[in-house]
């Protein structure tokens, strides 16, 4: 008993397992958004891209019988939908906020329409948890870390790959330059348009995979509203993580905890209605936004300097 709360072992293990599960899902979407933002493109369409990834991943998995093909489809669909934003906000220089919001509305609507016939379909195809042999049998840690879906491990791997590419390759250097000072990247001979479109497409693919994580692993199946605002949490998480892979990962776990807790209020004997607890991730999102704004007010911003600014060359 701590502070009058009880901590039954199975409930704690279940909570941490789910925190990693939710955290990995949101981490994927956040990584993608972070890549786009590091290239200078704010994409508020994450919610829409996740919804499309969720429904597309489920449909393709059911129709092909393979969750892996479903996952691939989700990534491709996510990238394709992201190209709507790429066309308007990057290629044509439209307002990135407006274009991103439109993408969310469009993506969520189209996903609901596409998913009509699949609502309530039995999720016969889904990802099985990975069995790491003896590792999975370790008490506590085995259940929490080594019996996760393959998608959780993919998320960790993609985090390392993202870090390496951004910080240790020529392409990553150019991509970051496009986000910090597009004119500089252009003058150095890089295609700002190409880099930004690539970053937006990768961001869409990651968001699509995050959506498929929901429909193929966390809560298999398709229901309207399954993404439930988590795309917005992913956007907030990029700010929380100060555009850095490691801090985004940490934030993802914290938000994963906040998302996992509401379903387990009874096991912990928490007061109040579970509905109130389910507001936690969103309250946390708002709190992070406010805290971020307060902290950033007197500090050099961590955000890429050219974030949200369209780039055109011959201007005078």
């Amino acid at each position: 008993m701590i502070f009058g709360l009880t901590f039954p072992e199975t409930a704690v293990i279940g909570l941490l397992f789910a925190a990693i599960q939710f955290g990995a899902m949101i981490y994927l979407a956040s990584l993608g958004e972070m890549i786009a933002e590091r290239a200078g493109v704010l994409n508020l369409g994450v919610e829409g891209m996740m919804a499309m990834g969720a429904v597309g991943g489920f449909v393709f998995a059911i129709e092909t019988g393979s969750p892996w093909l479903g996952l691939l489809a989700a990534a491709v669909i996510g990238a394709a939908v992201a190209m709507v934003h790429g066309l308007f906000a990057v290629a044509l220089g439209a307002n990135q906020v407006v274009s991103g919001l439109a993408l969310t509305i469009f993506g969520v609507g189209l996903a609901n329409f596409w998913g009509t016939d699949y609502e309530g379909v039995r999720p016969e195809v889904q990802f099985a948890d990975v069995d790491w042999g003896p590792l999975s049998d370790i008490s506590w840690i085995g259940r929490i870390l080594f019996q996760q879906s393959p998608l959780a491990y993919s998320a960790v791997l993609l985090g390392f790959v993202t870090w390496f590419v951004l910080n240790r390759t020529r392409g990553g250097l150019a991509l970051r330059a496009a986000g910090e000072s597009a004119a500089t990247a252009d003058a150095a001979g890089h295609s700002v348009l190409g880099l930004r479109l690539f970053a937006v497409a990768i961001g869409g693919a990651f968001a699509g995979i995050g959506g498929a994580y929901l429909s193929l692993s966390i809560s298999p199946g398709w229901t309207v509203g399954v993404v439930a605002g988590r795309g917005w949490i992913a956007v907030a998480l990029v700010i929380f993580g100060a555009w850095k892979v490691r801090r985004v990962a940490l934030g993802a776990f914290l938000f994963g905890l906040a998302m996992a807790l509401p379903n387990r209020t009874e096991s912990f004997d928490l007061p109040w209605d579970p509905i109130l607890w389910s507001m936690l991730p969103y309250i946390l999102t708002i709190a992070v936004m406010i805290a971020g704004a307060l902290v950033l007010r007197n500090r050099p911003p961590a955000a890429p300097a050219a974030l949200g600014l369209p780039f055109r060359r011959e201007e005078r």
Binding site: T169, R170, G189, H190
Partner: peptide
């Protein structure tokens, strides 16, 4: 990083 931005090795 600025000096090599336009002409860097593939892996830095």
């Amino acid at each position: 990083e600025n000096v090599v931005l336009g002409a860097a090795d593939r892996v830095l």
